[in-house]
């Protein structure tokens, strides 16, 4: 009985690893220098990758890339892919790293099998499956990294843009700047309510001077926040409402329940009055002391 001849890939890899590596690196380099990644780094990645691939194939053959022998290779692939995604490589560029290993391998297989077309076809197919699977894995890891980056950035933006400022004992201000979408508004408002508890604030001023537009959904969020703050025992004042925003709000029936002031300073004056404080003029203005070195 003839069993099909064994794959020659393992022996090729053992005998010609260095040649394959240098051919692969030459291919990678043919795309030209890239300032996102150094030559040294790229070569280090290629040789590490090939090394792990050889070890994995030696241990379990080419078929089982989900198996334990391929674990170090899979891990390295994810690492490379992650760093490429962070460095701003496109998914195609990232995957090309793996796919460009095909040619050197095919070339060696061709030499090894010579005229035995059947054996060559079988080994080419096996290598294709392997490299394709690795390439797809690379794409997946790339995409996952990008998603993580996007989520992290969204959170950062949401948090960065929501400073709750204490103006006085019991008075908080939330100066909103930029476009408010629904999800950002939600984060901002939750933040404000938490701060009210933290600072035991009686009054919170929501200043929307820096907000270009308020759509109905956002206006509703603002209103809901005012209502929620009231349930907690604090009052809100909305200040800095632009003319067209005022119109939106009136059309929503907002003007009924919300205390609003034209600007932050009027709102602050009202807030001070509410907590029984007043700003009084001292005899003469005191000059502001500055230092040459900042802080």
């Amino acid at each position: 009985m003839d069993s099909p001849p064994a794959s020659r890939l393992p022996s090729i890899l053992d005998a010609h690893a260095d040649d394959i590596l240098s051919e692969w690196i030459a291919r990678l380099r043919s795309g030209g220098a890239d300032d996102r990644i150094s030559e040294v780094e790229r070569e280090r990645q290629a040789s590490g990758f090939l090394q792990r691939m050889i070890e994995a194939i030696r241990a379990s053959g080419v078929a089982d890339i989900e198996g334990p022998a391929f674990e170090p290779l899979r891990e390295m692939l994810s690492d490379i892919s992650r760093s490429r995604a962070m460095q701003g490589f496109s998914p195609t560029e990232s995957a090309l790293f793996v796919f460009s290993l095909k040619q050197p391998l095919f070339h060696r297989l061709g030499l090894a099998w010579g005229k035995d077309a059947e054996g060559l076809a079988r080994d080419v197919w096996a290598v294709t499956l392997l490299i394709d699977a690795l390439g797809l894995r690379m794409m997946e890891a790339w995409q996952k990294t990008r998603e993580e980056v996007i989520i992290r950035q969204q959170q950062e933006i949401a948090e960065l843009s929501t400073p709750v400022v204490k103006l006085w004992q019991g008075i908080l201000a939330l100066p909103l700047i930029g476009t408010l979408d629904s999800s950002r508004t939600q984060v901002v408002m939750e933040n404000l309510l938490e701060s009210i508890v933290q600072h035991e604030a009686d009054i919170a001023i929501i200043d929307i001077t820096g907000v270009p537009t308020v759509d109905t959904l956002v206006a509703q969020h603002l209103l809901k926040t005012v209502a929620a703050a009231r349930l907690m025992g604090a009052d809100c004042i909305i200040s800095g409402i632009r003319p067209q925003i005022a119109q939106t709000m009136v059309h929503l029936g907002v003007e009924l329940n919300v205390i609003s002031k034209a600007n932050l300073s009027d709102a602050f004056a009202l807030a001070l009055r509410r907590i029984g404080r007043a700003v009084v003029r001292t005899k003469s203005p005191v000059p502001v002391m500055g230092t040459a070195h900042g802080e």
Binding site: M189, E190, L193, I196, E200, A227, L231, M232, G233
Partner: peptide, 24 residues
Amino acid sequence: MRPAVAITLVELGLSLPGVRTALN
């Protein structure tokens, strides 16, 4: 009333008119 509770009550459509509230 906790913030999360207050947000949820408002979303539910309940603003407890006629009930006075305080922080603590």
